[in-house]
Design a protein around this nucleic acid. Structure first.
Lengths: 284, 284
DNA sequence: CAATGGGGAATCCCCATAG
DNA sequence: CAATGGGGAATCCCCCTAG
């Protein structure tokens, strides 16, 4: 399985070799790659990868919105066997196809009379498509071919489809990250104003989640409006009140950025809640 | 004269009509436009505008990096006179020409044998040019033509060139602006950490200037490094010490963003310095 | 020096608001 | 509805660091 997030799709103009798609369990020092294994078989086999859309994985590649670059000649397959039937793809790149070139790709009925209208209608179509199938999410589709009696790889097995891969440069799928906060503590009553610096977020699809780790889990959300999100890179918010104002000593909780729609979240940061100051009355 | 900053150059693809270049003294409600007046003359005249480069105003327009769009047909001139010889240009737009189309513009020796090499060499040339003459700065060049005895506008006067106009979308010429700070006061000793949210800045060409208004003017700079500039939209810095630690009551000073190279600055924000707390020793 | 990874510039697209 | 003004997405370019 490939890693779902954190990999950046590239445009052709960016050149090859910006690193291959890592495997789901890939680590800094121990890199792994998307891998498939053919079970219950001994012999030679050929495994091919294709990119398919996020939503309709089994059917479509009808428009090649992306192209996989693994070998020089553009084909994406490896031969395996006869003993180890594990195919590992170590240099998969995912290429963005631009809207413009995408429209050229389609075979047009060249001889029809609409010369101008084609172009705009294609753009419109592309836009429609873009709405349904997010171009920034793809899956890998592996197809294995076993050798037939003539030695040709013709006996196709049922393809398997990977989990979804999100373009890390796409604003709705980039890695969420809190890089800095002006305070890391506040009072149990909430209402403390915090300046938080982060990687790119979308002002209408982000929330700041406070939580405690134990089961039963308390959670609450930072208080801010879209206008408090500054240029996608900073958020000014107020802390939520803790579930209980009656604490004797400081409590440490966590906060993280979280996308409302996709549900993915950033690494957490610690935040310390202090008891409300002696003599300062709670608001009621 | 045109306004120097705050006007955005547009690409052709953005369509016409995103507002015309305002005059230097243009206000929200009282719009003015770049205007020239022919002195010491009575009669009809024609005034033409052209865009010229920032650095070499009198000579060049040799490559039309920008195009002025004022009338439908692309010509940019107005006829004035016979009494009022003031020409006002109310709908000047400045078009960005993309690098790609810029290279097409040049008349190529089509029949030479370098088919591939031309393109890359043109790009290289464009890049070279870009280094010397900043494509995001232009000037207007007005040329007036008086009527000759046949009624033709042939008697050109000496052209006049406007001040420089900076593309407000260009990162090194955009409007500087402080939009929010997490504190607006600190101590006279300095060293207070401030989170400041701002419009786009360049981490290597920005400083935070504290100053007092009176002549003799104290000034000092916020302490931060390029890595403290977060994604061009926020700066975490430490306040500088005031010129005197011996103050009895709070002092209000100003701070502003300031570009090191161009020297332009943002509107100031107030900042209040409090006396060092009773009993807290000054560091020495 | 090429591979890897990432910041930000140049280009493009489209939305909100006031006439 | 078109003019105006502006935010941000899609595309592209290039620098840094570690091998």
């Amino acid at each position: 399985e490939p890693k779902q997030r954190g990999f950046r799709f590239r445009y052709e103009c960016e050149g090859p070799s910006h690193g291959g798609l890592p495997g789901a369990s890939s680590e800094k020092n121990r890199r792994t790659y998307p891998t498939v294994k053919i079970s219950n078989y001994v012999g030679h086999a050929r495994v091919e990868v294709q990119l398919v859309t996020h939503t309709d994985p089994l059917a479509s590649t009808r428009t090649a919105w992306w192209a996989v670059h693994c070998t020089e000649n553009g084909t994406c397959m490896v031969d395996v066997g006869p003993n180890d039937l594990t195919a590992s793809f170590s240099n998969l790149g995912i290429l963005h196809v631009t809207k413009k070139s995408a429209s050229h790709d389609r075979r047009q009925p060249i001889n029809t009379q609409h010369l101008r209208s084609t172009e705009s209608s294609i753009l419109k179509e592309a836009k429609e498509l873009g709405k349904v199938m997010d171009l920034n999410i793809v899956r890998l589709k592996f197809t294995a071919y076993l050798q037939d009696s003539n030695g040709g790889f013709t006996r196709a097995l049922k393809p398997v489809v990977s989990n979804a891969i999100y373009d890390s440069k796409s604003p709705n799928a980039s890695n969420l990250k809190i890089s800095r906060m002006d305070k890391t503590c506040g009072t149990v009553l909430g209402g403390d104003e915090i300046f938080l610096l982060c990687d790119k977020v979308q002002k209408d699809d982000i929330e700041i989640r406070f939580y405690e780790e134990d089961e039963g889990g308390w959670e609450a959300f930072g208080d801010f409006s879209p206008t408090d999100v500054h240029k996608q890179y900073a958020i000014v918010f107020k802390t939520p009140p803790y579930h209980s104002a009656e604490i004797e000593r400081p409590v440490t909780v966590f906060l993280q950025l979280k996308r409302k729609k996709a549900g993915d979240s950033s690494d957490p940061k610690q935040f310390t809640l202090h008891p409300s100051v002696q003599g300062k009355p709670r608001p009621f």
